[in-house]
């Protein structure tokens, strides 16, 4: 990509122009795809495509561009590559883990329960910090719901369907028109976004523990 054009688009995107970021992604998409495709390999080709990874990478780019610190020509592609590689890694990790499921892990009731909320809280690495855990539980669940509502649509859907309602990844994939690998990838990103939201809401949660 021409360094001058990249610089101009990055500058405009940093000023909050979503069209500029869209153009930037459009121009870098072929290179990004070329970098990601070899990493999928034959083993996962039936469960994951480069487009799955690109879709989530684009969403992350829009969500996180304000944190991107461009250090010159080529930096945008490097940044996107890093996001895409993380997404790929998360998808593969999820697919591998699904092959050896823990019997205690899933409650497949199809309805969110206190346990499933607690499981989600545990999964994102948050802990209750209010003095009375029990008293705060209901309020915390409400707060968790609010935080999920503030996530991008795909993230919110995957968290609700997978973590709270206990549907299988393959079923969620079918309803969303995505691959199974994409669901694991979306879930990892959704957890990360939720973790950040929870970290900011310090009156309910503290991270760690």
């Amino acid at each position: 990509m021409d360094p001058t054009r990249e610089e101009q688009l990055v500058k405009r995107a940093a000023q909050g122009d979503p069209d500029a970021l869209g153009d930037l992604l459009m121009e870098l998409a072929p290179q990004l795809r070329a970098r990601i495709e070899p990493g999928i390999g034959a083993r996962y080709a039936s469960l994951l495509s480069a487009d799955d990874i690109l879709q989530v990478t684009f969403l992350e780019a829009f969500l996180r561009f304000d944190r991107f610190d461009s250090r010159g020509p080529g930096a945008t592609l490097a940044w996107l590559t890093r996001i895409a590689q993380n997404n790929l890694r998360d998808a593969i990790r999820g697919l591998d883990a699904a092959k050896r499921p823990s019997p205690a892990k899933r409650v497949t009731s199809g309805r969110a329960s206190d346990e499933s909320y607690d499981g989600l809280v545990q999964a994102i690495g948050a802990t209750f910090s209010t003095p009375s855990v029990k008293a705060a539980r209901h309020e915390a669940h409400r707060f968790l719901d609010e935080a999920i509502d503030e996530l991008p649509e795909d993230y919110a859907h995957v968290i609700r369907a997978f973590d709270l309602e206990g549907h299988a990844a393959a079923d969620i994939a079918a309803t969303m028109g995505r691959s199974v690998g994409a669901i694991y990838m979306l879930r990892a990103r959704a957890h990360e976004s939720l973790r950040e939201a929870m970290g900011g809401a310090s009156r309910y949660f503290s991270l760690g523990g």
Partner: peptide, 15 residues
Amino acid sequence: DRDMIERARVQAKAA
């Protein structure tokens, strides 16, 4: 790619 980018943009804006 354009569709995917547009979808990402809409979701990010709504969030």
